[in-house]
């Protein structure tokens, strides 16, 4: 078998055994217990929540992120093994949502890490969450969920944006851009 066939087979196998990091930020974490437990039962799609990032495939960002949380989120994301997928959950990860003018929350998650799929809403209902996960599985099957490859390819740009957010100063950016991006 060729390399492409093997990776296709791996994708088919892995799409029904997605493990998710239970990284709870913001209020979206409240919407997860009904999805995880018997009412909506995410496990029938092969998804369970996992305590350690090293064993997980999906990073679910549930809601707004303070800059201090973003630092931890980037650490968790970088600890995860490839292939890995990011799901932006709720309107806060898309454009800030109701925190659009907050001094301490980031507005657009895709500037700091590649997002494979967004779930709009404040809050999204469990049906919407399950729908998004099924779409993500579909994308994995077709090989369209390539956010982790993007993170490798544009690593410098992502690191620059993260540093810009962490330092709270844009006038320091020039030094960051001229540096090695680490």
């Amino acid at each position: 078998m060729r390399q492409e066939d093997w990776s296709k087979l791996a994708r088919i196998m892995s799409k029904r055994s997605l493990w998710m990091v239970h990284f709870c930020t913001g209020c979206g974490a409240m919407e997860m217990p009904p999805v995880l437990t018997s009412r909506y039962d995410m496990e029938r799609f092969g998804m369970i929540s996992m305590a350690t990032p090293r064993q997980a495939d999906v990073l679910l960002v549930t809601g707004y992120l303070a800059v201090k949380t973003l630092k931890r989120l980037v650490q968790v994301y970088e600890q995860m093994r490839d292939p890995k997928y990011v799901v932006g959950f709720g309107s806060c990860t898309i454009n800030g949502g109701m925190y659009w003018d907050s001094y301490n929350t980031i507005k657009d998650l895709s500037k700091y890490m590649p997002v494979d799929i967004y779930i709009a809403g404040c809050m999204p209902r469990p049906e919407a969450i399950i729908d998004a996960f099924l779409k993500l599985m579909d994308m994995i099957d077709k090989g369209e969920a390539t956010g982790w490859k993007k993170y490798h390819k544009y690593y410098k740009q992502y690191k620059r944006n993260q540093k810009m957010a962490f330092s709270y100063r844009l006038d320091e950016v020039k030094d960051i851009e001229e540096g090695d991006g680490k």
Binding site: G96, D101, K107, K111, P114, Q157, L170
Partner: peptide, 11 residues
């Protein structure tokens, strides 16, 4: 906010 978060460029 306008001078900081909204000026961070997209990738």
């Amino acid at each position: 906010v306008k001078e900081h978060y909204y000026k961070i460029p997209e990738v």
